[in-house]
Design a protein around this nucleic acid. Structure first.
Length: 570
RNA sequence: CGGGGCGUAGCUCAGGUGGUAGAGCGUCGGCUUUGGGAGCCGAAGGUCGCCGGUUCAAGUCCGGCCGCCCCGACCA
């Protein structure tokens, strides 16, 4: 490809709206163009990357025995009503009507579609097991699209579905996909952690997430470097700590005027936050107040809370509600003088803490040196705290690492969550009708482009790993007016094409610095610089990744680069 | 969904107190230049997000709407 003819236009100015490096660089280097909020056009170089990612995924899926098909984007309401998700999926579903008033959604995921297809075709246990997959555009009306391709409203996903006769067989399908995913992320050169995960609203019994470690992403993963345990932070269990061995001091009432936050209170009383009982009031289903008590140095994990109370319909109480219920402001809620009918949850972190600071539901006063057993009785303990760096690993007790990441893959053992309500049955060996056991397996294909840039860039631009680079080699002709240089560059370009290298030839009439800067920004793994060394029969080969430079004889340059590329792709 | 901000040339942005729109970069033409986003000369390019109001006069003031970004909540 000659760059002078190629649809690749970089920006010199920094895109003002982008913050995440991947978003900024993909815009600046001319890979993506926004169409509207969370909706992006993939330009030719980005599409080349996307296709390479897809093909790596395809190869590993096919190797695992999965078969590719193509479902539809437009999905009728009726199927979604069968599983109840037309309503429960909520506002995230893009809905529309046809001219006759029939309702559809744009598929955000395809469990209903695939289950419908399979129930119409499959009859017998002889036809199982089966894994089907597609690479398809998906639509989710995200509340807040963010960071370019990282959270888009229209995006490309690989979704696979497994169908088995029994739990054991389903488990084998699940494990097969798990291994395929590990191979895929290795081949994509991504640093990805496989973590245990919550099954969430998709349902099912077992689930793993594949999280790329990045600074921009929605996932938080906790992992143990000792035993290999890794899980989404929101499901890491935290046990009660050891009881503190500390002399119990006499309880005292202390005036704490205008002290509202834990931090202020800790400074005012000169105690660590871990000695303060924090009380947070939630309103469940818009009517039932629940008071959550937690140690002052900890935060509430609302995902854990959701699983405890069994609904996501809850919110923090408003100031007025606190005043109405407790007769005091936020910051002065505690366990003493509690009004009737308020449910109280005790987080494990509070167990065994001595000489606590506790509010007493009276403005501007706290008790200090409050002790369990003597001054109050514990209620029901639960685990609602967010996991933090250095919390003990639930498997082996070693301090955990907690890192931010980007969810690239998610696999679920679904069981009969979809086959049962949709009546996807097969006849088993014993002649009985049984629901198919299902699994589903997603990979965010377009999001992988961003994850790659997050993990492979520097201050000058992107550094694509060779297997996914839009072009493997950039041949830069420095002086377009120099006939000798031009002849050499043309010859090398044709030779590279001939030898099957993905090559772009920068034949544009631009200054040397301009071309170098573009090459760094767009991030081709190798470049050949055709410049003044041509007089000595040489060109310069450079690696974007390592920064290494080699002077190579003109005739050997392409073979030299080809060898490097082959090595990278192994 | 709560909070904040922005919308003027392709991009980044400037345009006290209302007076009919500018810069840098990019683009086009010419000359010069070619190992790190070159220089000089010239030119084109705008329904100032949309609708309404106030006014002799609105990019500027007022009202409504739309779009986009950021923080949080949310996020198989």
């Amino acid at each position: 490809m000659r760059w002078s003819r190629y649809f690749l236009f970089t920006e010199k100015e920094e895109p003002k709206e982008a913050e995440a490096p991947s978003h900024r660089l993909l815009l600046k280097a001319g890979f993506i163009k926004q169409a509207s909020a969370g909706i992006y056009r993939l330009l030719p170089p980005a599409y080349r990357v996307l296709k390479k990612i897809e093909n790596i995924v395809r190869k590993e899926m096919e190797r695992s025995g999965a078969q590719e098909l193509l479902l539809t984007v437009l999905n009728p309401k009726e199927l979604w009503e069968e599983t109840g998700r037309w309503d429960t999926y909520g506002d995230e579903l893009f809905k529309l009507k046809d001219r006759n008033g029939r309702e559809y959604c744009l598929g955000p995921t395809h469990e209903e579609e695939i289950t419908d297809l399979v129930r119409k075709v499959l009859r017998s246990y002889r036809q199982l097991p089966l894994i089907l997959y597609q690479i398809q555009v998906k639509f989710r009306d995200e509340k807040r699209p963010r960071f370019g391709l990282i959270r888009a409203r229209e995006f490309i996903m690989k979704d696979a579905y497994s169908f088995d006769t029994d739990e054991m067989s389903a488990m084998i399908s699940y494990e097969t996909m798990k291994f395929a995913y590990q191979r895929i992320f290795n081949k994509l050169r991504l640093n990805v952690i496989m973590a245990e995960a919550d099954v969430g609203q998709i349902g099912g019994s077992m689930s793993h997430e594949f999280i790329a470690l990045t600074d921009y992403g929605e996932a938080k993963v906790a992992y143990c470097e000792n035993c290999g345990y890794a899980a989404n932070a929101e499901i890491v269990p935290l046990q009660k700590p050891e009881e503190e061995q500390e002399e119990e001091k006499p309880m005292e009432k202390v005036h704490t005027p205008d002290v509202h936050t834990i931090q202020e209170l800790a400074e005012f009383l000169n105690v660590p936050p871990s000695k303060i009982m924090k009380a947070v009031l939630y309103i469940v289903n818009e009517k039932e107040p629940i008071l959550v008590l937690i140690r002052g140095d900890r935060e509430i994990d609302e995902n854990k809370l959701e699983r405890i109370i069994g609904t996501d319909n809850f919110r923090l109480a408003k100031d007025e509600e606190v005043i109405k219920l407790f007769g005091t402001k936020k910051g002065f809620i505690g366990i003493f003088n509690l009004p009737e009918g308020i449910k109280v949850l005790w987080d494990n972190s509070l167990y065994g803490v001595k000489n606590l600071v506790v509010a007493l539901n009276e403005p501007d006063w706290h008790y200090i040196n409050v002790n369990p057993g003597r001054d109050f009785q514990y209620g029901d303990f639960v685990d609602v705290a967010q996991v933090k760096e250095n919390d003990p690993c639930p498997k082996c007790g070693t301090p955990l690492k907690v890192k931010k990441g980007l969810e690239l893959g998610h696999i679920f053992l679904l069981g009969t969550r979809y086959s049962e309500p949709m009546k996807a049955y097969f006849t088993d060996r014993d002649g009985k009708e049984k629901p198919i056991i299902m699994g589903c397996y997603g990979i965010g294909i377009s999001r992988i482009i961003s994850a790659l840039v997050e993990q492979y860039h520097d201050d000058k631009g992107i550094k694509w790993p060779t297997p996914v680079a839009p072009f493997e080699l950039d041949i830069i002709l420095l002086n377009t007016k120099d006939e000798q240089q031009e002849q050499v560059a043309e010859k090398l370009y044709l030779e590279a094409e001939e030898k099957g290298i993905d090559v772009i030839y920068d034949d544009r009439e631009e200054s040397a610095g301009f071309k170098f800067a573009d090459a760094d920004l767009v991030g081709f793994p190798y470049r050949i610089i055709v410049g003044r060394k041509v007089k000595e029969g040489k060109v310069e080969v450079q690696s974007r990744t390592s920064g290494e430079k080699w002077d190579v004889e003109i005739d050997k340059a392409i073979d030299f680069v080809k060898e490097k590329i082959e090595e990278d792709k192994k």
